[in-house]
Design a protein around this nucleic acid. Structure first.
Lengths: 199, 199
DNA sequence: ACCTGAACACCGTTCAAGT
DNA sequence: ACCTGAACACCGTTCAAGT
C-alpha cells in the first residue's frame, strides 16, 4: 500500500496517543503502517521534521475559526484551544514543547495568535513579540500541567488541584501587560479583570 | 577513580558544551570519565534525572546574589542571568527547556524568581503563578533564540537580528501585567516603561 | 514515486559479580 | 560504596536494489 505525508502524520498521532512519545519511533511507526522504517524517509527528511509535522497537525486540529468579539476574547480563545488540543493526546504538550524548543512546528498556532492580536490596537511591531510570548506561556504551562496530570494518574500524590486556574491566571497576567501597550484610541472594550479571589 | 554526583554533573556540562545535547549520552559520558556507562547508574536513577541535575547546575551557576533595589529590577536581573546562563553553553537552553517540559530541574531558578517577587506587593497567592509564567517565557524564548543563533552560525541566513531586544520586550509585557496586580500601597517605585520605538 | 532488505553505528538500562 | 563486563532489547539513518 502507498502512503502520503498526511497518512503517516495521522498514524503517528495514533501511535503517540496509544504508546506515548518515547515509543513513537520510526521503527514502530513503520511496523504500524506495515512498512519498513526506511520507507518513511521517502516522506520526511528525518524524525525531527516528522515530529514537527505531527505537532503542527495536532495543534491545527484544535483551532476553531476566529470568534466574533473583542480581541482579548479572541486571544483567550486561541490559547484555550491550543491547550485543549495538546491535552487531548497523550504526551501532546511534551511533543509540542520539545519540537517548538528546537524551532519547528506551531506555524498554524502562531498565525492564529497573530490574527487574534491584529485588531487589538497593539503597535504593529509588537504583535509578533506578543504572539511569541503567548505561545511560550501556553506551551510551557501546558507541558508542565500534562506531566503532572499523567504523573498523578499513574499513582503519585497530587498537591496541585488548581493547575487549570493557574493557566487562566498566567494568561490574564500577560494579557494585562498587552493591554497597557494598546493605544488609547483602539477598541479596548473591557476593563482588565482582577485576580481570582483567594479561596 | 571514584566519583560523586557533582563530578559527573560537571563533566556532563563539558561534554554538552563540546559535543552538543544529542551526543551527551550515558556511554559517551562514561567513557569521558574513564568508567563503564553502568557505573553512572550508581549515582543517578536514569538519564532523565542526570539531565535534570545538569540543568539545575547550569542555571545555578549563572545566578548572582540578589541585587538591591526595586522588585522589578530584581526580576529583570534574574531573567537576564538565567538567559545568559543558558546561552553560555552549547544547547544549554534546549536542555533546560526539554528537562523543564518534563517537570524536572530549575529549582534554584524558581526560588530566585519567587525571591525577587516577594517584596513586589503582588498578592501572595499570585507569586508562584507569576514566577512560573516568567520562567516559561525565559526558557521558551531563550531556547528559540539559541536554536536560531546556532543555526545561523552554521551558515543559514539570519533575518532576525533583534532577537535579544525581543527578549526584553516580551519580559516588559509580562512585567507590566504583574504591575497591574501590585496593590497600590506597595512599593511600585517606577512607571511602566514604554515599548522600544520602531527603528 | 514509493518501497524492501540489509547493514552501520550506535542507544538506555539491568544485573551478577568483583573490590 | 562504587565499579566492571556482559548482555538485552532496542534506536535513527543510509543505500543499493527492486516495481
Amino acid at each position: 500500500m502507498r502512503y502520503h505525508r498526511g497518512d503517516i502524520v495521522e498514524r503517528a498521532i495514533e501511535v503517540l496517543d496509544q504508546y506515548g512519545l518515547a515509543d513513537l519511533t520510526m521503527r514502530r511507526l513503520g511496523s504500524e503502517l506495515g512498512v519498513q522504517p526506511s520507507a518513511l524517509y521517502h516522506h520526511f527528511a528525518n524524525k525531527q521534521s516528522l515530529l514537527g509535522a505531527v505537532a503542527d497537525e495536532l495543534l491545527a486540529r484544535g483551532l476553531r475559526p476566529p470568534v466574533e468579539g473583542p480581541w482579548d476574547d479572541q486571544v483567550q480563545a486561541v490559547c484555550v484551544q491550543l491547550r485543549d488540543a495538546m491535552l487531548a493526546w497523550r504526551d501532546g504538550a511534551e511533543l509540542v514543547a520539545t519540537v517548538h524548543a528546537f524551532g519547528l512546528g506551531a506555524r498554524a498556532a502562531y498565525d492564529a495568535m497573530v490574527g487574534a492580536l491584529a485588531d487589538s490596537g497593539l503597535p504593529d511591531q509588537m504583535v509578533p513579540t506578543a504572539a511569541r510570548a503567548l505561545l511560550h506561556l501556553v506551551f510551557g504551562h501546558t507541558a508542565e500541567e500534562q506531566t503532572q496530570l499523567q504523573a498523578s494518574s499513574v499513582g503519585a500524590i497530587d498537591l496541585a488541584p488548581s493547575e487549570s486556574s493557574d493557566f487562566t491566571d498566567s494568561l490574564a497576567l500577560l494579557l494585562d501587560g498587552i493591554r497597557v501597550r494598546v493605544s488609547p484610541g483602539a477598541p479596548r472594550r473591557r476593563a482588565a479583570p482582577r485576580a481570582a479571589p483567594p479561596r
